[in-house]
Amino acid sequence: MEYSGTITKRYVKFVLFSLLVIVTSCQRDKEITRLLNSNKPGEIIQGTYEAGMSGDKKYVPLLLKDADNPAVSTALHFKGFSVYTEKMYALERILHVKPPHPYNGILVIPDSVNIKFYNNYWRSINKR
């Protein structure tokens, strides 16, 4: 009888832990989505960074939206990085494909070739 009580306690702990992970994951997803849809460059860059670190392809459409945004963050953590630069970095990280032109560096002007490249690449992998 004691043995089944131990199994029940473990099961309950497992279920509670699983629910906690699911709730936390959903909140993180909502926060990243909120940041990516923000009008503030610092928030967009933070959301872009987090989306890139997650590696989740569900953020690609939001990353492609306004990818040519040259706005720069004044937040200390992302100072000098533009929305464009961070979005290119996140897209490369998520899609595992480098764009044709370099995009890294501080105050890089958005490159329409890179943006078109990722738009076309995203469309091509979603045709399948």
Rank of each mutant, 00 (worst) to 15 (best):
E2W: 10
S4Y: 12
S4F: 13
S4T: 03
G5K: 09
T6F: 04
T6S: 07
I7A: 11
K9V: 00
K9S: 05
R10C: 02
R10G: 14
Y11M: 14
V12L: 14
V12R: 09
V12T: 09
K13R: 04
F14V: 07
F14N: 11
V15W: 08
L16A: 14
F17R: 05
S18T: 10
S18E: 08
S18R: 06
L20P: 00
L20A: 09
V21A: 01
I22T: 05
I22E: 15
V23D: 02
T24N: 03
T24Y: 15
C26H: 06
Q27N: 01
R28P: 10
R28A: 08
D29Q: 15
D29K: 07
K30M: 13
E31N: 11
E31D: 13
I32W: 00
I32L: 02
T33D: 14
T33Y: 09
R34W: 07
R34T: 06
L36I: 05
N37C: 10
N37G: 07
N37K: 08
N39K: 04
N39L: 02
P41S: 00
E43M: 07
Q46A: 10
G47P: 09
Y49W: 09
Y49G: 00
G52C: 13
G55Y: 11
G55D: 02
D56I: 10
D56W: 11
D56P: 04
K57S: 03
K58F: 06
K58A: 03
Y59T: 02
P61L: 05
P61D: 09
L63P: 01
L63W: 08
L63D: 05
L64G: 11
K65S: 08
K65Y: 08
D66A: 04
D66H: 09
A67Y: 04
A67V: 05
N69D: 01
S73P: 11
S73N: 03
S73I: 01
S73A: 13
T74N: 11
A75R: 12
A75L: 09
L76N: 02
L76H: 05
L76R: 11
H77D: 09
F78K: 06
F78P: 15
F78W: 12
K79T: 08
K79V: 13
F81R: 12
F81C: 07
S82P: 08
S82K: 03
V83D: 00
T85R: 05
K87P: 01
K87T: 14
Y89D: 03
A90W: 01
A90T: 12
L91M: 04
L91H: 10
E92Y: 09
E92L: 13
E92D: 12
L95T: 15
H96C: 02
H96E: 06
V97T: 14
P99A: 12
H101Y: 12
H101R: 14
Y103N: 06
Y103P: 08
N104Y: 05
G105C: 01
G105Y: 00
L107I: 06
V108P: 08
I109T: 13
D111Y: 00
S112G: 07
S112M: 10
N114G: 14
I115D: 05
K116N: 09
Y121R: 14
R123E: 11
R123D: 15
S124K: 09
N126W: 06
K127P: 12
